[in-house]
Amino acid sequence: MPNSSAEGRAVSLTVNGVLRVVEIDERTSLLDLLRERLHLTGTKKGCDAGACGACTVLVDGARVNACLNLAIRLQDAEVTTVEGLTTGDGDLHPLQRAFIDRDAFQCGYCTPGQIMSGIGCIREGRAGSRAEIREWMSGNICRCGCYPRIVDAVRHVAAGEGA
């Protein structure tokens, strides 16, 4: 039985504002580090191959697929996951609120990735129209087909209505 506090190399990175120093196997992805070691299970594992977007997080402010990031490469990086969006007093991020208000999910599995990607999309200035949002959010698959409402939520926040 492998030791769950895996031997290996140390990496220190900031996750949701908290400095974390962990010993990891070189093969550990950021996704597995978040979920299995740091118990931040908001970030979801869908395809584990960069094809579905469920694991989208922000690394140094840019949206990326956590499954394709080797954690060992993230020394001194700043990672933001869906757990890091709420403020100290528990207020939801405007995009989280917009997803609820607009019923932008059904099963919810892709939702954390959709929200993190939506934040990236807005920051990149690519949420100017429904067509632009659809194109720039195409890396996030929703098998429930909630796309129209996801676009509604991103558009709402991008337009400043919910910010």
Binding site: G53, N65, G120
Partner: peptide, 9 residues
């Protein structure tokens, strides 16, 4: 090409 996430990496 790819997705916005992949293009960032």
């Amino acid at each position: 090409s790819a997705s916005a996430q992949l293009r960032n990496m």
